[in-house]
Design a protein around this nucleic acid. Structure first.
Lengths: 270, 270
DNA sequence: TCACATTCGATCTAAACCGATCAAATAGCG
DNA sequence: CGCTATTTGATCGGTTTAGATCGAATGTGA
């Protein structure tokens, strides 16, 4: 509206200022999700070179992402840190923990397995067991045991929480309330001696609690990155944890504290 | 929003950048568990060479595993035999059927999706929908939609039937009994005009029946190998089938017969 | 086990795209 | 009026990317 230099020359074509052009570029990208440089140039009536410059500038401000051939919304295609990278994080420790935890499962057992990448690794170790009954709310655990005919897998119902690939909500909790198993293998995001196991999500916490209540023994699987860490919602208090399986990078003092409170320790050497 | 006054050049399609292509490959693999290179190439509209390159790159990041002929989820115990069977069988028909079935789903719908590889392919097509509520007893369907934040997935509980990766038993049926959805997308092993949809397994049949009862419309997904085939247990009688989605290799006479009984036909051309 | 088919890997080619430098036009300023 | 700074457009070389081909390796089926 109020451009500094008014009608100095009111000649033919209306001028397209750089700021306006960039604004239109942004709008186009936002509207289409991804636009090629050629289309952008055509749309704003400038050359590709100019648009390239604009796009680079806009990228510098974090308003869009530049790609070979065009531009996209920022962060749209770069969601790499998905689930599978978490398994990569401390894969060897997880494997060692899962091996040790699997030794706590005997043929003929009825057990519950919670959500998490470590519990998924545990489930993979159980394919050789026989006469096993496993109840879980984790899609990944169920998948791991799906092709194993000698293991009966029961899933709770519930709403799928995509980030952890597990079922939550009252259907899941109610399904667990009606069951009784010998051991529950539960993971979490943090474990301290004072507050026990914790997770950042309320719904997940509720299901984990229900799972712990359904079991005689509660086995917590937690690699060293989680020991001594406290997150938002407590799931299982220390007194109810009977076993902890972790790796030997876990802080010694916390482990001692847990042990003094009656938790049986199983430390896997990575 | 404020579309420019410029004539929009409708000739140029939305570009697909390399990053987006890889993202889609990941989605496809996550959804299907195992996808052949050819299908991936077809799905993303690139050559097999390019897809091979992408897959190799993604493997380097640990996001998927590479196998002869295709790619699978990482770290999974890969079931090679089932893999080639299922994807090779009638992959293109399944894809075409799934595409057509996806067009029967509207944003904001509440739908049910049964077990099967075709329904799984359908689920894969729903990731772009918004405000969708999906209830399913299929692990594969749930997995396909797990990473989609705009789709709410509710799973029935139940016992895992490994061969079809779906939940069966009374918990599954009871969960469905308490629900009401607009459309149910059900597959099966055989479909005839006289007996309707059928499957060789009793438990699976019960769940499919419960799912059909929970829906206003019943959409059957069946490729041509199943049309005219009758298997042991009837799941949905022809009168309750409102739509059939199949491919153009299906026997004409059976289709006509079904149509005369009120089934709306949707024939995908492979 | 052997023969056949499919798929993989590598190299090459073609094309698109990017970056940089330079030329031209316009606005600002003395 | 003329100079200069800023901005835009054009060209060129280098780089990246995608597709094609062919020998080699791997699976498949009899």
């Amino acid at each position: 509206m109020t451009d500094g230099k008014t009608h100095d020359t009111a000649e033919s074509a209306r001028p397209v200022f750089a700021a306006e052009r960039r604004q239109r570029i942004l709008e186009l990208v936002r509207a289409n999700g991804a636009v090629s440089l050629r289309d952008l140039a055509r749309a704003v009536g400038s050359s590709e070179v100019t648009v390239r410059r604009d796009v680079r500038m806009l990228e510098g401000e974090g308003l869009l992402d530049r790609h070979h051939g065009g531009a996209t919304l920022p962060g749209e295609l770069t969601r790499e840190p998905t689930y599978s990278q978490k398994t990569q994080l401390s894969g060897t420790e997880k494997a060692a923990i899962a091996d040790l935890a699997a030794s706590l499962v005997e043929d003929g057992d009825a057990i519950a397995i919670g959500a998490g990448t470590t519990t998924q690794a545990l489930a993979r170790r159980l394919v050789r067991h026989t006469e096993l009954a496993v109840v879980t709310n984790s899609l990944l655990v169920a998948q791991a045991l799906a092709d194993c005919p000698r293991v009966e897998v029961v899933m709770t119902g519930g709403t799928l929480r995509g980030s952890i690939h597990a079922l939550v909500g009252s259907p899941a909790e109610q399904a667990l309330a009606g069951l009784r198993v010998r051991r529950a293998f539960i993971s979490g995001n943090g474990l301290t001696a004072e507050r026990g196991l914790s997770t950042p999500n309320l719904q997940v916490a509720s299901v984990d609690r229900a799972m712990a209540r359904a079991a005689e023994d509660v086995v917590v699987l937690a690699d060293h990155t989680k020991i001594g860490v406290d997150t938002m919602v407590q799931t299982v208090p220390t007194e109810e944890i009977t076993h902890l399986v972790t790796d030997d990078d876990a802080p010694r003092d916390v482990l001692d504290d847990l042990a003094s409170r009656g938790v049986r320790l199983h430390v896997a050497r990575g």
